[in-house]
Write a protein that binds this DNA or RNA. Sequence first.
DNA 1: GCCAAACCGTTGGATGTCCTAGTATATTCA
DNA 2: TGAATATACTAGGACATCCAACGGTTTGGC
Lengths: 168, 168
Amino acid sequence: MGTHLPRDPIAEARRNWEEHGWEDVAAPMAAITAVMRTQQILLARIEATLKPFGLTFARYELLALLSFSRKGSLPMKKASALLQVHPTSVTNAVDRLERAGLVARSPHPTDGRTTLIALTGEGRSLARRSTAALNSEVFSDPGFSPGDVDLLIRILGDFRRNAGDFAD
Amino acid sequence: MGTHLPRDPIAEARRNWEEHGWEDVAAPMAAITAVMRTQQILLARIEATLKPFGLTFARYELLALLSFSRKGSLPMKKASALLQVHPTSVTNAVDRLERAGLVARSPHPTDGRTTLIALTGEGRSLARRSTAALNSEVFSDPGFSPGDVDLLIRILGDFRRNAGDFAD
DNA sequence: GCCAAACCGTTGGATGTCCTAGTATATTCA
DNA sequence: TGAATATACTAGGACATCCAACGGTTTGGC
């Protein structure tokens, strides 16, 4: 898949849009398509780094979230909200992490509907080691200049707030 | 899933990183996570717009690519390279599009290994209508200011070039 | 107090992505 | 020319996401 192209396919798409009389939306189309492609590249790097640990990004995110939680455990629903994924995706991730002995489910003490998930000792250890790997192999050299990192955080933060992700 | 949070979960993650002594990679981590989440939001909008046409984004991209090709047909391999996805993903998309009568496969006239894909009349019509829908429902109001759109194109373009997507 | 409505997590199904391996065809080079 | 290598597509499997629907629990209004 590591196909190098002579020219930027997104710039080509933008030209196509302009030639068809859609100049007014050509630039946003290009920006949105670029976000898609960038996500794909970053995800591939992250997954490659996590592979030796037997983790995927989805599972790593859950592990990391749990490792930062005060009480050491979270309701499924809370994890779903914080990770911004569908509840069934959390069920799926927890199933696999539990089978691997990295997290454990337990009933909520007062609410019979709720299931709590908590890290096991092994899960906490793996969270620490895989985070160290991501820090040194991906985040330390993200492919954006420091100035661009700040711009991205600002631009995408505005976008997410506007999309209703959070209030602030 | 449309859960609104009181605070920005990515900003929280950044704080967690900083508290754990990873200040040097906290900002890039936040930027990369923001790209992930932004892609997720944009993809959801696009899929919602395409749903009435019976299309997914993956299939739409292939339809659009074919509609802009000079000869009206492309080898599978070429489509895979231009869309930057794995060849098996193209096979998957073509299978479904072909079953829906939107594209047709044909053997390459001189290279027996190659399969060409071309739009049917119905496929061309659907490409036109679904593009119009995306233009008016998504790209016309992308959630980025015009200035930010230009910044994104520049920043992500640099990133993709650096990642080896294209030469230029 | 009780029943309807809301809520939580899970199951099953559809779709997409990637990887590995297999088959068929082209190309290269000794 | 014939064998080794490279290329193109496809089949099968693992994993992720979402949606729709179901069963159990809690809550709220009468």
